[in-house]
Design a protein around this nucleic acid. Structure first.
Lengths: 207, 207
DNA sequence: CGAGCGATTGAACGCTCTCAAAGTGAGTGG
DNA sequence: CCACTCACTTTGAGAGCGTTCAATCGCTCG
C-alpha cells in the first residue's frame, strides 16, 4: 500500500487496461467515464474523498479514471486485497455493501438520463454535489463545483452549452447565486428540490 | 426456500417495501423499474432465467419488479441467505462478482441513455436480447421480444412511438425482418452492430 | 360482431443540439 | 506591468431529432 499524488487532468487508469490496483481517494476529485468509438463520452460518476476506485471483479478496468483536481490516492495491489479478503471475511461484506450502494446510485442516474429534462438534470446534479459535500463533513452550501462544464455535460447526457444556459437560468430565477465558475450558493433549496423531481416547471418561476 | 409461479404483468415486489426475500428467476422474464413522482418510469433492467432479483444490502427494495411473462421464481428469505453467507464464504465472492457484473451493465446502459441516438439504442437493445438468449443456451436469432413497446421505450429512454418507428425503419432497411410484435429475425447482424456503435448512419442505408 | 388494448403511422411542435461569436480569466513573455 | 494567447464559458440563432397529439390498424376476447 502506497500513497500517490496526481496533478489535475491526468489519467489514473484507462479502460481495458489490466486492473492491477485498487484505489482509495483521500483528497481531491476524480471522474470516471466510458467512451464510444467516435469519441462520445459518458461520465458515469464522480469520486470524492473516502470513495473507492477500480473495484472490479474482472481482470480489466471497465472504465477510465481521470483526476479533476489534484488528487491524493491510496493504492492497493489487487492481489494484496484478495489475500486480505481471505483473512477478513467482514471485508467482503463491506465490499458487497459498497457495490450494492453504487448500484443504487447507478439506477438513480439511469432515471436521470432516461427520463429527466435538462433543468431537472442540472438541479439534481447540484443537489448531488451538496449531499456529497455534507457526507464528507463539509457544509453543503455554497457548493464547490471543481469539474468543468464539459464534464458536467458528459455526466448529465447534455452539451456544455445546455449546462451553461440552464445554470444561468437558475441564477436569473434566484434558485441559485453564481459566485464564479466553481462556486454556487443555493438560494432556494426547496424550489431546487422541486425542480429536480419535476414538480416545479420553468414557467412557474418567471423571468 | 420455495418456488412460486406468477402470472404476466404482476408485481413481484415494490420499491421502498421491506426487502424480505431474494429471488432467482428460473423461467420467464421480469422487468425492474423506478418511477418519478409524476409517473415517468425508467426500466433499469430486464431479468432473464438464471438471474437474481432483489439482491440489496439495504432493508428496502430499491426498485419495483414486475413480471413481463409468466415467471417461475425461487424465493429465499433474506435472513436465510445471511446465515448461509456465514457458512459459505465463497458465496460472498459470487455475490460480489454478480454485483460487479451488474454494475458494468449499468454503466453500459448509462452511455446508451446519455449519448446514443434512438436508432443506436434500439439496435443495442436487439443485440442485448440476442446475447441474453445465447447466454442461456437458446439461439440468438430470431429473437423473441416478450415485452411490449412501452416497456422497451421506458428501458431505452424513448417513447413507444419512437421505438415503433425505429423498428419499422430497420425492417424497411432490411437490417431485421419483423415476424410479429414478439418475434424479429436479424437479417444483417454486422450492419446492426455498426448501427449500435454509431458507425453506420441512417442515410447510408437507403429507403 | 363489437369492444378494447396495443402497435403503427402521420403531422406539428418544442427541447436540446449545432454552429458561431463574444466574453472571461489564467498563464506567458516582453 | 501590460499585452497576448489560449482554453473555457457564456450567449445567440437556427436546425433537427424525438416527442406530443391524434387517427388508423390489427389482434384478442367476450
Amino acid at each position: 500500500m502506497q500513497t500517490v499524488v496526481i496533478p489535475p487532468h491526468r489519467l489514473v487508469f484507462v479502460e481495458t487496461e489490466p486492473a492491477r490496483c485498487v484505489f482509495n481517494l483521500t483528497e481531491g476529485v476524480v471522474k470516471i467515464y466510458k467512451m464510444l468509438p467516435d469519441g462520445r463520452r459518458q461520465v458515469t460518476g464522480f469520486i470524492f474523498p473516502g470513495d473507492f476506485l477500480g473495484l472490479v471483479q474482472s481482470p480489466f478496468y471497465a472504465y477510465t479514471a481521470e483526476t479533476v483536481t489534484e488528487a491524493k490516492l491510496c493504492q492497493f495491489p489487487r492481489k494484496r486485497l484478495e489475500a486480505l479478503l481471505d483473512k477478513l471475511p467482514d471485508l467482503g461484506d463491506r465490499l458487497l455493501g459498497m457495490a450494492s450502494h453504487e448500484l443504487a446510485i447507478a439506477q438513480e442516474q439511469m432515471i436521470l438520463l432516461g427520463r429527466k429534462s435538462a433543468r431537472e438534470r442540472v438541479a439534481s446534479f447540484f443537489l448531488m454535489l451538496s449531499k456529497a459535500a455534507q457526507r464528507r463533513g463539509e457544509q453543503g452550501n455554497p457548493i464547490s463545483i471543481p469539474m468543468q462544464r464539459g464534464d458536467i455535460a458528459d455526466y448529465l447526457g447534455l452539451t456544455p452549452e445546455t449546462v451553461s444556459r440552464t445554470i444561468s437560468r437558475f441564477n436569473a430565477q434566484r434558485l441559485i447565486q453564481i459566485k464564479d465558475d466553481e462556486q454556487v450558493s443555493i438560494v432556494d433549496p426547496v424550489a431546487l428540490y422541486k425542480v429536480a423531481a419535476g414538480a416545479l416547471r420553468d414557467a412557474e418561476l418567471g423571468v
